[in-house]
């Protein structure tokens, strides 16, 4: 739901890197977004197109790589990769614990790289 502020941050950061690298035009930007986030790819591209219109990032394609949800078992420290709809009935495959998990990954919001001319 907060695609707009996130998009603003993305634009700020890539413009900074574009300047540092003397870039003429940004072609694509790769984001890594955790599966726990409700970010909508379509919206973020639309906001980005609008905000970046008059910059070197105008027309850049946003590629979103989803980072899976990984829980860590509080009992045996096993890392467990799950889908979001499995959150309710996760059981540790190693020690059979059914509670006390912490979130190891799945909440990231990260700009990985960009392609530029």
């Amino acid at each position: 739901m907060h695609e707009l502020p996130v998009t603003e941050r993305v634009l700020d950061i890539v413009l900074k890197h574009a300047e540092k690298n003397h870039v003429r035009k940004i072609v694509s930007i790769t984001l890594k977004v955790g599966e726990l986030s409700d970010l909508e790819s379509e919206w973020i591209q639309q906001y980005f197109d609008y905000l970046s219109k008059d910059t070197v990032a105008g027309g850049a394609v946003l590629k979103i790589e989803r980072v899976p949800i990984v829980l860590k078992c509080g009992q045996c420290a096993e890392s467990i990769t799950i889908r979001k709809d499995q959150l309710g009935d996760t059981t540790c495959p190693k020690c059979s614990a059914t509670g006390n998990f912490s979130i190891e990954s799945g909440r990231e919001y990260y700009i990985k790289e960009m392609e530029a001319e």
């Binding site: 950061i13 890539v14 690298n21 035009k25 919001y109 990260y110 990985k112 790289e113 392609e115 001319e117």
Partner: peptide, 17 residues
């Protein structure tokens, strides 16, 4: 069209906040 180069950004969007 110039050459396309890959730039590693590696920045967390929420880091400033």
């Amino acid at each position: 069209m110039g050459d396309i180069k890959l730039i590693e950004v590696k920045e967390d969007i929420l880091a400033d906040n």
